[in-house]
Design a protein around this nucleic acid. Structure first.
Lengths: 220, 220
DNA sequence: TTTATTAGTGTAAAAAATACACACTATATT
DNA sequence: AATATAGTGTGTATTTTTTACACTAATAAA
């Protein structure tokens, strides 16, 4: 059998202490005027990862972003006009790197906007379910993944890192225990720099050392 | 874009102390005479899970088996005759419940046979990669999943359970520590029965209590 | 009765996770 | 200069979890 084949992207970033998802407003039936995950048909000779790159580039102007396949969603009833199989990807961009004005839209979508994951609008199709599943996976793999560092700028403070963990896990963590654990893990490099432009004591900056991470965790 | 759409199943069972995978010998080009994962095209109005059920039923005569989606594999180059998107599922059957003579084959495949995961033959397409990924996932979720109990008969001994864990993790575990951990977890029911037909001291039998499992782990 | 084979059990040590509170520093404000 | 404000940075004691480790008990077969 043949089926229509699309990619949908859950695009995350971290901003204002919250995990954010980039959604687009549809300008087409079905679900006209509803918010939806950005997605497109996959071209005939195009790899799925290339399609993800393409969508991300068109929307945010970024290349080489972090992505991870979430799975296939192919319910016969998920699209009113017959089955459309979509393969969902979780992707991450750094909020600051996304051009402030997200790219002007195609005819398919009117605008794109960041939403905090704890206050999403109603969503088209089964996109709510997709995000739910993506968040669940984020949570369960958090401590063995590079995801927190994909969400933060290259240099970050331990408090910012803790905020990311808290935003994803949806609970607060003890500051001293968090620091002990994360610093002991041994894949953060303490810089001699400190934060700038804050109106209180500036915090020390750290960098994530990917090589040490892979060496110590053996992941990926 | 439209694409061909198939399902491939990694069908596991546990036998002779080893994790086994059911493979079929292809009787068609491409990869004629190669071993491959059982798979079929998905019908137009058929849910993916239904397709998995159908394949499993045709091959093993079983219904209501355990399944879990692994992901989509859609490399442009994975099939010589152009892209065929396959969604892979990991499934589990109890070895004893599968009719000893696995169903007579269709024209597509000559025979089906169990292979221990540590001695697989060369495989068609990207099926080696699919199995690899499936095994990896099995490993990493083992302690929070019902998989070991899907592999075992309803009543089992702690040694058998330990064998399952060892087969999947690929390493030996300490008997006392394993028992302590698993019994403390609180979702095994000790029966008053013991094993029969063994030529040595018979071991106590246990049952898995799904409800307690979900209550205590909160998973699924 | 002896042999072979697996079942079943406890304790001590080490490591990891948790709970918990205050002094320090940099800036902005008066 | 003094003070208020806001977040940084740090240690210890307790509990829980994980690890290491070896012998006796039960049964069937010879």
């Amino acid at each position: 059998m043949q089926t229509n084949f699309t990619i949908d992207c859950v695009i995350y970033s971290f901003h204002l202490g919250k995990l954010q998802v980039l959604l687009t407003e549809r300008n087409e039936y079905p679900y006209k005027d509803w918010w939806a995950l950005p997605g497109f048909f996959v071209d005939k000779e195009e790899e799925m990862e290339e399609a993800v790159e393409r969508i991300l580039y068109e929307l945010t102007g970024l290349k080489g972003i972090y992505m991870e396949q979430l799975g296939a969603f192919a319910g016969v009833k998920r699209h009113p006009q017959g089955r459309i199989l979509t393969v969902a990807y979780s992707t991450i961009v750094k909020y600051d790197e996304v051009e402030s004005k997200i790219k002007p839209m195609t005819s398919y979508m009117r605008q794109a906007k960041w939403f905090a994951v704890d206050s999403l609008p109603d969503l088209a199709f089964d996109h709510r379910e997709i995000i739910q599943k993506s968040l669940q996976k984020l949570k369960s793999t958090l401590y063995y993944s590079t995801i927190p560092y994909e969400l933060l700028p290259e240099k970050f403070t331990l408090s910012q890192l803790q905020q990311v963990y808290e935003a994803i896990l949806g609970k607060t963590l003890d500051k001293r225990n968090f620091r002990k654990k994360i610093v002991n893990a041994g894949y953060l490099r303490e810089l001699s720099e400190v934060q700038k432009g804050v109106s209180y004591r500036a915090a020390r900056l750290y960098k994530f050392d990917k090589r040490k991470f892979f060496k110590t965790t053996g992941v990926e």
